[in-house]
Structures are given as C-alpha cells and as structure tokens.
C-alpha cells in the first residue's frame, strides 16, 4: 500500500518534471522566434524560463531519490558486515528524512519572508517562485518517509553535470 503510493507519487512528479523540461525548451524557442519575427521577446521571458527549470528540478528531487539516481558512492556500503550495513542504511534514511523535513519547514517560512519582494520581470510576488522549494523538499520528505529504512537503489549510471 505505502509502496504503491510511493511509486505512484514518484511517477507522477517525474512526469510533471519531464513536461516542464519540454515546456521550457518550447518556450525558449518561442522567445528566439518572437525576437526575430516581432522584434522583441517579453521582458519576463528569461524569468519564466528560469522558474520553470527550477520547478522541473525541485519537483523531481524526491522521485529521483526513489529511483536511486542521485549521485553517490556506494562502494563502502556494500563491503561492510551486514549489521554495520543496517546501521548505515538506517542512518542514511533518518538523516534524509530529517534534513528534507527541516528544509521543507525552513523554505516554507522563507516563502512568507520574501512576500514583499516583486520579481523584476513578471512583477509577481517572490513568494510564488520560492514556493517551489517547500513543494520539492516536501515531496522528498514524503517519498523518503514512505520508503522506510531500506537500502537505496543503486544507480545504473552516475551522472555528472
């Protein structure tokens, strides 16, 4: 039940994140086109593109964690005795849940603090883009919590940049 919920949530968020990547690519192309055909692109152009990419990245953080695709080194973890390995895995889990939880709270509070700043392009309250953070870290918190202290999936391929 919990595992199914986790799986479903991860797929959904990664789907949203993929759609945002597609949208940004299209949107930047629109910006280039607008400049050539209409002479100028809207003043909020690069701001919206930036916030969309940040959205894609933050919303996916939890799902990527579930997939075990965050960069990490798992050599030592595999070579220690099983009891120690269990300790390490529990520690990894507790720490991830705690940090994700703390960060969700901090960034939620921060959303309130920056409300009176307006973004220079879109002229919206800075709270809107910043709200992506509690959302992203909240998802990480939830997905990690649902996971329980299990060994993280191994990366098939380690990405760099």
């Amino acid at each position: 039940m919990l595992a199914a919920l986790q799986k479903w949530l991860a797929r959904l968020t990664l789907g949203v994140s993929s759609l945002l990547v597609a949208w940004v690519t299209g949107f930047i192309l629109y910006g280039v086109g607008a400049r050539y055909f209409f002479g100028s692109s809207p003043i909020w152009f690069d701001e919206l593109a930036r916030y969309s990419i940040i959205g894609a990245a933050m919303i996916g953080v939890g799902a990527v964690w579930v997939e075990g695709a965050h960069m990490r080194v798992s050599i030592l973890e595999k070579r220690v005795a099983p009891p120690l390995r269990r300790v390490i895995i529990t520690y990894q889990w507790v720490l991830t849940v705690a940090l994700a939880g703390a960060m969700t709270w901090f960034s939620y509070e921060y959303v309130g603090k920056v409300g009176f700043f307006k973004t220079p392009g879109l002229q919206i309250s800075r709270s809107w883009p910043v709200a992506i953070m509690p959302l992203g870290f909240g998802l990480l918190f939830l997905l990690a919590l649902l996971n329980g202290p299990k060994a993280m999936r191994d990366q098939v391929v380690e990405g760099d940049q």
């Binding site: 993929s18 759609l19 933050m58 996916g60």
Partner: peptide, 18 residues
C-alpha cells in the same frame, strides 16, 4: 521522445540540487 525527456528531468534534478 518521452524517455529522453524523462532521463533529462532525472539528470537535471540530480545536478541542480547539488
């Protein structure tokens, strides 16, 4: 196409959060 987008989203997330 979808697989490419998805892999991009995964790597983007992994890189941006760092």
């Amino acid at each position: 196409l979808w697989a490419s987008l998805r892999d991009t989203a995964v790597l983007t997330s992994a890189v941006f959060v760092i």
